[in-house]
Design a protein around this nucleic acid. Structure first.
Lengths: 139, 139
DNA sequence: GTGATTGCAAATCTTTTGCACTAAA
DNA sequence: TTTAGTGCAAAAGATTTGCAATCAC
């Protein structure tokens, strides 16, 4: 890898998405994209940034998460009333949701086969199809 | 008492669910279950009750929706960050979600075929599988 | 410089809670 | 009675907004 410019790939990624590579966006992108796929809430990410001595306000975390989502860098996952998760895996996939712990886990798109879907109603077109597999603790 | 009493079936339904048929629960049950399948938020239901001159506090609406859900009379649907919908169709089915309007529509369980699902991870067992088909306005 | 971005605090929105009051059994 | 249920107002979260200060280009 190129240790001299650790932010370089992230800079490009942001630029390609049409977002200015500001200090805050780069810091958050680093936390989000470098560790591999993950699911975070705004609060979590904000706490992480603080823990890593990156000064970013919570408002900016929200702004950034939404901008990244709008540009396709992230995907918003809604499974828990009153809390949004953001998924750094923006590809085709689904989710396990552990009801007990509130945790999310990716399920590769290939592991779920939707053999039949209804047609989109008149005036609409099909968007994403989200499959959430809810898991209960085994008794 | 006479079988023509309009609340009688609802009274039984509540009793069977182990819930006291109070004035408020009956009023809400009437709004929820008599018009056929529907999707409501707590605020909506509260407004409806007020409009029909049924005096029910918002806290009671929330309590009641959750009690009904716990007893299997309703199903909570989470698709919109920061708002919960309650679905009076508690049977096996999925949802269309109109992104533009925030509306939900039932999709009969038979119209979606999940031909393949991953196994539940160790220590867990499969719960419900929710399929949300997101719809965009046709451009 | 100029417009985009950020931080802060206040505001908003949904949902929950504590507790005294009321009503069903 | 006795206990579950209700209403109210306050509290708790999560998220958003307004606006002056700051930064990227």
């Amino acid at each position: 890898m190129s240790p001299s410019r650790p932010f370089a790939p992230l800079v490009d990624r942001l630029k390609q998405a049409g977002l200015r590579p500001t200090r805050q966006r780069l810091a958050l992108a680093k936390l989000l994209f470098e560790p591999g796929f993950r699911h975070v809430t705004a609060e979590q990410l904000h706490a992480e940034a603080a823990g890593a001595n990156m000064r970013v306000s919570l408002a900016t975390v929200y702004n950034t998460l939404h901008q990244f989502t709008r540009q396709g860098l992230l995907r918003e996952v809604v499974v828990d009333p009153g809390r949004s998760y953001f998924d750094t895996n923006a590809g085709e996939h689904h989710h396990f949701f552990f009801e007990e712990t509130g945790e999310l886990q990716d399920v590769d798109g290939a592991e779920v086969e939707l053999a039949r879907l209804p047609n989109a109603p008149a005036g609409t077109k099909l968007g994403r199809v989200d499959v959430v597999i809810r898991l209960l603790p085994q008794k």
